[in-house]
């Protein structure tokens, strides 16, 4: 969570609100914040830390591990209409990539603002595509896979 906290200013600049959720109680969140997070991120984690103590929220999001009694590492990007645009679920041993999260936010915001679609690896300023029948079979004229790297 501190990796997300460290990039929080960038996310806020994109009008993104972050909510973290685990099966820990809010009391444990408070002690974790005071005991450890504030030593890793100035001021501690700046976003709300939610408690899903019985896993029921994780269940409807498909991330609750009943055997372990915890929520798996799941990340959901939700647009201003409350629609899930992206999700990523990882087993606990591998952490997230905040760069990719921010890239996806930028891409989904571009799509929402312009109606264009973004090819693989798209970043702001790069060519996006206008979906139309004319584009069928003609993507090669305007975009190459190397651009997504």
């Amino acid at each position: 969570m501190t990796a997300v906290a460290a990039r929080y200013a960038e996310l806020r600049a994109l009008d993104v609100e972050v909510l973290s959720v685990s099966t820990d109680s809010r009391f444990v969140h408070k002690i974790w914040q005071a005991d450890e997070l504030e030593r890793m991120v100035p001021g501690g984690v700046p976003f709300p830390m939610l408690s899903d103590q019985n896993g029921r929220i994780g269940e409807i999001y498909g991330v609750y591990d009943e055997a372990a009694g915890v929520d798996l590492r799941g990340r959901f990007l939700i647009d201003p209409d409350g629609v899930i645009q992206a999700m990523e679920v990882l087993t606990p041993a591998v952490g997230r990539n905040v760069d990719e999260l921010i890239r996806q936010v930028q891409a989904f915001q571009h799509v929402r603002a312009t109606g264009e679609v973004t090819p693989s690896g798209w970043r702001p300023g790069q060519t996006a595509l206008h979906p139309s029948p004319d584009l069928a079979g003609a993507v090669w004229k305007v975009w190459r896979p190397q651009q997504g790297q």
Binding site: E17, V18, L19, S22, L72, R73, F76, V94, V105, Q109
Partner: peptide, 17 residues
């Protein structure tokens, strides 16, 4: 509603992967 939201589940406090 009206804002972009990143909802992040994680396995537990005091874990750091």
């Amino acid at each position: 509603l009206g804002h972009w939201v990143v909802l992040c589940f994680y396995p537990g406090d005091f874990t750091f992967v």
